[in-house]
């Protein structure tokens, strides 16, 4: 299922009175099964883009389309994941994974079966009766992925899901996410601060400018092994792509 932004602008009211334009005139398309990353400076409106896709905010101008239909509220096609795992501490892992299914009228037995399947899928077998505090950060993130996959969304939105993890866990988790997502053929939008991560995981990268965020560059990542970032990592071209992103973000000028 495809996702499209058509000249989207989002203005937030502020307490001081002067409205704040988070993103301005953003247009892009993510095709079915494609993995697109969005990079950009802090506060440029990346999370806002994600929230609009999830239907949590409406754009001030323009429109957001999911499978050619206008998004005007939370919808069943989209699942999202943030830096925080957002597991409910009062529920054990299995019922956390079931959470998204409950409001969809899925019968109890089927809910459980689907959640157990996702649990296995995300390598958390045996942890179904544990509570979130009994899991490590990486395991909690995997549980959050399992919850996102359980509702079988066509589009997955990821907002810096790996940024709170240590380097090794991050790599393993990126690999496991990439594989799971590729196998399921999901359309994915990943928001990240980590340029290497963007190169390793995506088919295409969108670079946003400072606030108000607009798209300043769009880079096709023409490398193999999208479903296995660990393999892609050793390719020599990865550095070149990262350098290209670096240039577009004007990091050197800013440091000067």
């Amino acid at each position: 299922m495809a996702l499209e932004f058509r000249s989207v602008t989002k203005v937030f009211p502020t307490n001081s009175g002067a409205p704040l334009t988070a993103v301005s005139d953003v247009s892009f398309r993510v095709n079915e099964g494609e993995f697109v990353s969005v990079v950009g400076p802090s506060g440029c409106g990346k999370s806002t883009i994600l929230s609009m896709t999830a239907g949590l905010y409406q754009p001030s101008e323009g429109e957001v389309l999911v499978s050619e239909e206008r998004v005007d509220g939370p919808n069943a096609h989209v699942g999202f994941m943030l830096q925080k795992d957002l597991l409910l501490p009062w529920r054990n892992i299995i019922s956390n994974i079931e959470f998204g299914l409950e409001s969809r009228g899925v019968p109890k037995a089927e809910r459980h079966a689907r959640a157990m399947a996702e649990l296995k899928h995300c390598h958390l077998d045996g942890f179904d009766r544990q509570y979130p505090y009994q899991l490590s950060g990486g395991m909690r993130q995997r549980a959050a992925l399992a919850r996102t996959l359980a509702i079988d969304p066509e589009i997955i939105l990821l907002d810096e899901p790996f940024s709170a993890l240590d380097a090794q866990t991050k790599l393993l988790l990126q690999n496991s996410f990439a594989k799971t997502i590729a196998e399921a053929g999901k359309t994915t939008l990943l928001i990240t601060h980590d340029l290497a991560e963007a190169v390793l995981m995506s088919d295409r990268i969108l670079v946003l400018s400072e606030r108000p965020g607009t798209i300043v560059a769009e880079i096709e990542v023409d490398l193999p092994h999208r479903e296995e970032p660990i393999k892609r990592r050793v390719l020599p071209e990865v550095g070149e792509y990262a350098a290209q992103l670096f240039k577009h973000l004007k990091l050197e000028e800013k440091a000067a």
Partner: peptide, 29 residues
């Protein structure tokens, strides 16, 4: 109550009452 949790619940199509029962009530316990 964590705004992100509430947004998560809304994204999962929970009603206002559902958000209260499943997020706000247990969060405030």
């Amino acid at each position: 109550v964590d705004r992100d949790l509430i947004n998560l619940a809304r994204a999962y199509n929970l009603s206002r009452l559902g958000v209260f029962r499943k997020i706000e009530m247990p969060s405030t316990l």
